Amino acid sequence: MRKDEFIYQQMLKAIVEHHLLPDVRLPEDQLAETFQVSRTGIRKVLHRLALERFVTITPNKGAHVAKPTAEEAEQVLDSRILIEPVLIDGVVAHWSESSKTRLYDIVKQEKVAEQNNNLKDMIQLSASFHTELATLSGNLVMAEFVNQLTLRSSLVIAVFGSKQSVGCDCGHHHDLVDMLDRGEAESAKVWMKRHLEAIKASLQFTIDKPKSINFKDLFSTI
Rank of each mutant, 00 (worst) to 15 (best):
K100D: 09
Q124V: 09
V92P: 05
D121Y: 09
L136S: 00
L77H: 15
V45L: 06
S98F: 04
K61P: 00
S128L: 03
L51C: 01
R43I: 01
D89T: 08
D78H: 15
T135H: 03
E72Y: 06
R152V: 10
E114K: 05
I83G: 07
T101N: 12
K67D: 10
Q109T: 00
L77F: 15
A93N: 14
H94R: 15
K67I: 07
R48M: 04
A93F: 09
W95S: 09
Q124C: 10
Q75E: 15
T56K: 08
F145Q: 11
K100L: 04
V112P: 00
L140C: 00
T101Q: 15
I81R: 03
T58I: 12
R43S: 13
K61E: 13
E110I: 03
L140M: 02
A93V: 04
R43H: 14
Q109K: 09
I106T: 00
E110K: 06
L46F: 03
P68T: 13
Q124R: 12
E84V: 13
H94Y: 07
R53K: 11
L133M: 14
H47I: 11
I123H: 05
K100A: 10
E72H: 11
H130C: 10
I57H: 10
V107I: 07
H64T: 14
R152F: 07
Y104K: 11
H94S: 13
V112T: 12
H47L: 11
L149C: 09
L119I: 07
D105E: 14
D89L: 02
P85L: 11
N117L: 09
M142I: 06
L151K: 11
N60T: 06
H47W: 07
L119Q: 09
L136G: 03
T101W: 05
E97T: 08
L103P: 02
E97I: 04
H64E: 13
V107W: 13
V86D: 14
S99Y: 08
L136C: 06
P68I: 07
A134V: 02
A63Q: 12
G62T: 10
V45E: 06
K111W: 05
D78W: 14
M122W: 04
N60L: 08
A50H: 08
Q148R: 11
R43Y: 10
R80Q: 15
T131A: 12
E110W: 05
H47S: 10
H47F: 06
V146G: 01
T56N: 07
V86M: 13
N147W: 03
E144C: 07
G138M: 12
Y104H: 13
L51M: 00
A73V: 10
N118C: 01
E144K: 13
K120Q: 09
F54I: 00
S98Y: 10
L46Y: 03
E132N: 10
R53Y: 08
V141W: 03
I106V: 05
K100I: 01
E114D: 11
V107E: 06
I83H: 06
V112H: 03
P59T: 01
V86W: 11
